[in-house]
Simulated scan of single mutants.
Amino acid sequence: MPTAGAAVAHTAAAAFFDLDKTIIAGSSALAFSRPFRRQGLISRRAALRSVYAQLMVVFAGADEDTMDLLRQRITVLCTGWDVAQIRSIVAETLHEIVEPLVYAEATALIAEHRALGDEIVVLSASGLEVVEPIAALVGADRCLATRMGVDHGRYTGEIEYYCYGEEKAAAARAIAAERGFRLEDCHAYSDSITDLPLLEAVGHPTAVNPDRALRRAALQRGWPVLTFDNPVALRSRFRSRVPRVAVATGVAAVVLGLGWVGLRRRGGPAGLPSPTGA
């Protein structure tokens, strides 16, 4: 982690951040289920099942097979959804829903990295167009996230790019090479064991609100472990820096954000109810 007197000797690099439970508290999947229900995209029963799924995965360990199962269910759910409608819902509700979830500790850490000249990068398995506006809200320079296929303005149910697991590490390596950064100078922050490849790829890994498996791995490797527990609204802090157009642009793959953000990293038992709308 950067420290207060480190600016003199600091070599500018990249700081890679996961999204859920690292930058924001809780799950954007669960948060967005309400406006989706209001717009008739999901039923009350589906919304309740998503709540149950979220509660279950909090206590579950990471499981690759379950991740795949949940991913398949989400893509089936959203196939055929109108992209323009999704874009409108997210743009209209982003500030109301997301701002109160952002950790004050995360924004302070991002500001510290920025002051040192680091590039702030958000890497998320959630949909690109839900991650982009959140990344803009917290002052990130760029983000990479999952992209979902679209045809004639509707989701196809196909995944074009899955920013998950080893793929996050590959993305970090590519960004570092592009920007001329040394990976040993870069930082990475995540709460999930599924991001172990990313954390191992950089010289300065940090576990934030880690799940059980990542906490064990961090302790074994001597990595710092941080607890973020103070979500605060960001409107007054970032309004002048984030034009509303940045919030409204994109959302072509938002449903992955709604379904994956909280579920991708912990997975539940194979029989877990589909987290529809989560």
Rank of each mutant, 00 (worst) to 15 (best):
76 V>P: 00
44 R>K: 10
102 V>G: 01
212 R>W: 02
5 G>D: 10
214 L>C: 14
228 F>G: 01
150 V>W: 07
205 P>R: 09
166 E>T: 12
267 G>W: 05
10 H>P: 06
58 V>P: 00
167 E>L: 00
215 R>T: 15
118 D>K: 01
258 L>F: 11
44 R>Q: 11
68 D>E: 13
274 S>C: 03
152 H>E: 13
202 V>F: 04
246 A>M: 07
198 L>R: 10
243 P>Q: 06
119 E>I: 04
77 L>G: 01
208 V>H: 09
221 R>W: 09
109 L>G: 00
138 V>Q: 03
16 F>A: 11
80 G>E: 14
117 G>D: 11
264 R>Q: 03
62 A>P: 02
67 M>Y: 13
13 A>F: 09
259 G>C: 08
8 V>D: 06
181 F>A: 03
227 T>Q: 12
254 V>E: 06
11 T>E: 07
108 A>L: 14
219 L>K: 00
38 R>G: 12
244 R>L: 12
247 V>Q: 04
204 H>L: 09
278 A>L: 15
1 M>C: 03
56 M>Y: 01
269 P>E: 01
134 I>L: 15
191 D>G: 07
105 E>D: 11
58 V>Q: 06
222 G>M: 06
202 V>R: 10
214 L>E: 03
189 Y>D: 12
193 I>A: 08
19 L>R: 01
151 D>G: 02
76 V>T: 12
84 A>I: 00
83 V>Q: 05
52 Y>I: 12
141 D>H: 14
103 Y>Q: 11
177 A>F: 01
206 T>S: 10
180 G>T: 12
144 L>E: 08
46 A>G: 11
216 R>H: 09
53 A>L: 04
49 R>W: 05
127 G>V: 13
138 V>Y: 00
76 V>F: 01
129 E>L: 03
93 T>V: 01
244 R>Q: 11
18 D>I: 03
115 A>D: 09
130 V>Q: 13
61 G>R: 13
157 G>Y: 06
270 A>Q: 02
135 A>S: 14
191 D>A: 14
130 V>I: 15
151 D>E: 13
123 L>S: 05
174 A>D: 14
205 P>L: 03
99 E>S: 15
32 F>G: 04
73 R>Q: 15
266 R>E: 00
80 G>W: 08
128 L>V: 02
255 V>C: 07
57 V>Y: 14
19 L>I: 05
181 F>P: 00
9 A>K: 09
99 E>Q: 14
134 I>M: 11
247 V>R: 04
100 P>W: 03
190 S>N: 04
258 L>K: 00
185 D>P: 07
228 F>A: 10
213 A>R: 07
234 L>D: 00
109 L>M: 07
252 A>S: 15
100 P>N: 01
260 W>V: 04
208 V>S: 08
236 S>T: 08
40 G>T: 13
83 V>K: 02
142 R>H: 11
96 E>S: 13
270 A>V: 03
211 D>H: 05
22 T>V: 14
90 V>H: 08
69 L>K: 06
201 A>V: 09
219 L>Q: 13
184 E>D: 15
87 R>T: 12
248 A>H: 08
194 T>S: 12
183 L>V: 06
131 V>L: 00
56 M>K: 13
36 F>Q: 13
190 S>W: 04
129 E>Q: 07
143 C>M: 08
48 L>Q: 13
143 C>D: 00
38 R>N: 12
254 V>T: 05
204 H>W: 10
29 A>N: 13
